[in-house]
């Protein structure tokens, strides 16, 4: 498996650390309530198909990445810097 880091280019998967669903970017406000926090920290879908995930280019540039990947075909549709995604939200 290979991922194309927007900074470093196409790299072998062993350079990356896998985190999980990209929902981790959407941190609720402290007072958002139990349900919102439960969703954020614990509840995850397990889709067969496209999903957004967080990977860390740990053995490369150190960037956190949002990877759009299809779990059934293993196609990678896009890799974006998590920082760019987070900045765009603000």
């Amino acid at each position: 498996m290979r991922l194309t880091c927007p900074i470093c280019g196409a790299r072998d998967r062993r350079e990356f650390y896998y985190q999980g669903d990209a929902v981790a970017l959407d941190r609720p406000a402290p007072g958002a309530g139990v349900q919102a926090w439960d969703d954020y920290v614990h509840l995850r879908d397990n889709p067969a198909g496209p999903r957004r995930e967080l990977w860390h280019h740990e053995a490369g540039c150190g960037a956190w990445l949002v990877v759009e990947r299809n779990t059934t075909t293993h196609e990678v549709h896009g890799v974006t810097l998590a920082m760019a995604v987070a900045e765009a939200r603000r």
Partner: peptide, 8 residues
């Protein structure tokens, strides 16, 4: 020459 990579 002059290329560099952070890698394993």
């Amino acid at each position: 020459r002059g290329h560099t990579a952070r890698t394993l």
